[in-house]
Design a protein around this nucleic acid. Structure first.
Length: 467
RNA sequence: GGCGGGGUGGCCGAGUGGUUUAGGCAGGGGCCUGCAAAGCCCCGCACACCGGUUCGAUUCCGGUCCCCGCCUCCA
């Protein structure tokens, strides 16, 4: 298995520190609003890496945090508004109720998209002591300092490798600095909060050695990743926007605390755009799982849409492309039911397809190549010397462990026409045999109006639900 | 201003120093059919612009234009 490492800017082999067992950490959702498809694409990425690794025979442990601490709209301003607090005001709920509501919603949306749950989903609010502990360690090791109001800042100048992930090294940061108002107590403008003193009216706050306050944005990931996975983590994923400052700061924290490299491979997923702009709450162009459902699109079809684009690339979302993908997935399921049951063994041709599919996934998760292989398999001849239907079924069923498209749904689900439908089908066949086409066409219209697709086959009239 | 990533045929989107250079959808033609549908077969010869390297570049290098992300919360 090879993955592109943002840190080294190269595709690297995944070589877990513990042989055969890959430890993954994924930056997860902030739960004061609904997740949109862009967020979910990134969560899906972590799951796809896990699925592909498992197909390769690895054991995988995936930890994904739930950020239920509100962060500031603007870290540098004293008048900054807490986003969690905004949600609290808008919805008339308590912070924990807000968190619960949206946590549940994200879990549901992820499930609808076939994203398997992480092995562990720690909540930030339940690990405040670990964050305080890590902050103490950083102070002790000379990487952080306390200022007079009780906030604690990370001293970026104390960490040699600062900037290695994003390219934003300290000299570059100084050079290209935007005129931001920063806390004058900071030693360097790029210093960031590990712990923030609670201002008046702050709802979520905890006691600490430096007074009541709340954790900085980046510390939760350092603290929880190392708590659950140790200080040698094989893969860390997140959206490309987290590359700087979030992941850069996370590296400074984790490595500053333990004194050595913590994460081996950093994987960043590309953003979803719509009409050229990234999908975001602030842009006002969010698309949610519910929007897919409202349009009669199977949410799992969003997976197929995503598979066509390399995970690292930005992807433009359009309803036209989404509907095309949906049609294709539904078509695949229909073909599966035609090919059932699965063959017991694979012939040479089928085995070759299998090898190519697995190689595509192992090559930096090349889903576009995998999609092509699926398409080739589907349209390959089922004649002797080709791939018989039963083998196609067996292959696609196996690949579905990664694709997650529920391809066997129709074949297994066994949709069957009702007695009424069967009676009409018989009537139509009789009319057709008698060449009474006026009657047969009328019956076809009747079946069509029942939401069915009518097909003539060698065995007579067949119907299936129209998608 | 700094950092990072892009511009491919009607659309979505892979990929590659040349020789058969994806795939899907839409579109055109055909087979099949009583007619449709479904299925099958055939058809597009693209790579922002300008230079350079090369026998040869869409692919490598330089420049130009444009787009997107990050630098404030962000997947």
């Amino acid at each position: 298995m090879r993955l592109y490492n943002t840190l080294t800017r190269a595709v690297e082999d995944v070589v877990p520190v513990e042989p055969g067992h890959v430890k993954m950490y994924a930056c997860g959702p902030t739960v004061y609003r609904y997740a949109h498809l862009g967020n979910l694409r990134t969560y899906m990425l972590a799951d796809l890496i896990r699925r592909a690794l498992r197909l390769e025979g690895f054991t995988v442990t995936l930890v994904q945090n739930v950020t239920d601490v509100g962060h500031m709209t603007d870290e540098s301003s004293p008048e900054a508004i807490d986003k969690m607090l905004l949600a609290v005001e808008d919805e008339g709920l308590q912070p924990l109720e807000i968190a619960e509501k949206y946590t549940r919603s994200v879990i549901e949306d992820a499930a609808a998209l076939g994203i398997d749950e992480p092995d562990v989903s720690p909540k930030a609010t339940e690990h405040i002591p670990e964050m305080i502990g890590l902050t103490k360690t950083l102070i002790d090791r000379g990487h952080a300092y306390v200022v007079d109001n009780g906030s604690v800042y990370y001293d970026v100048a104390s960490f040699d490798g600062y900037g290695k992930l994003s390219g934003n090294t300290l000299d570059k940061l100084r050079e290209g600095h935007r005129d931001l108002e920063t806390d004058p107590r900071k030693h360097h403008p790029a210093d960031f909060a590990l712990w923030k003193a609670a201002g008046p009216g702050r709802l979520m706050k905890w006691p600490s050695p430096w007074g009541d306050g709340f954790p900085g944005w980046h510390i939760e990931c350092s603290a929880m990743s190392m708590e659950f996975l140790g200080d040698r983590i094989d893969i860390h994923t997140g959206g490309t926007d987290l590359r700087f400052p979030h992941h850069e700061d996370e590296i400074a924290q984790s490595e500053g605390a333990v004194g050595h490299r913590v994460v081996s491979i950093w994987v960043h997923g590309g953003h979803l755009r719509q009409a050229g702009q990234k999908i975001a709450k602030s842009t006002g162009n969010v698309v949610r799982v519910q929007d897919l459902v409202d349009r009669g699109i199977d949410p799992l079809s969003f997976r197929w849409l995503c598979f066509q684009t390399q995970y690292r690339s930005e992807m433009d979302f359009s309803w036209a492309a989404m509907e095309t993908a949906d049609q294709r997935v539904k078509q695949l399921r229909r073909r599966m039911s035609e090919w059932a049951p699965a063959a017991e063994a694979l012939g040479a041709e089928a085995a070759d397809f299998d090898t190519r599919f697995r190689a595509a996934l192992a090559d930096d998760l090349s889903f576009p190549a995998a999609v092509r292989i699926v398409n080739e398999l589907v349209s390959s001849p089922s004649v002797p010397g080709g791939v018989p239907g039963g083998e196609k079924y067996a292959l696609l069923a196996a690949w579905d462990a990664v694709l997650g498209l529920d391809l066997q749904r129709e074949a297994i689900g066994g949709w069957t026409p009702t007695a009424e439908m069967r009676a009409l089908m018989n009537e139509r066949d009789e009319a057709r045999q008698a060449k009474d086409y006026a009657t047969s066409d009328r019956i076809r219209d009747r079946l069509t109006s029942m939401g069915l697709e009518v097909m003539d086959t060698a065995g007579g009239t067949q119907v299936r639900p129209r998608d």
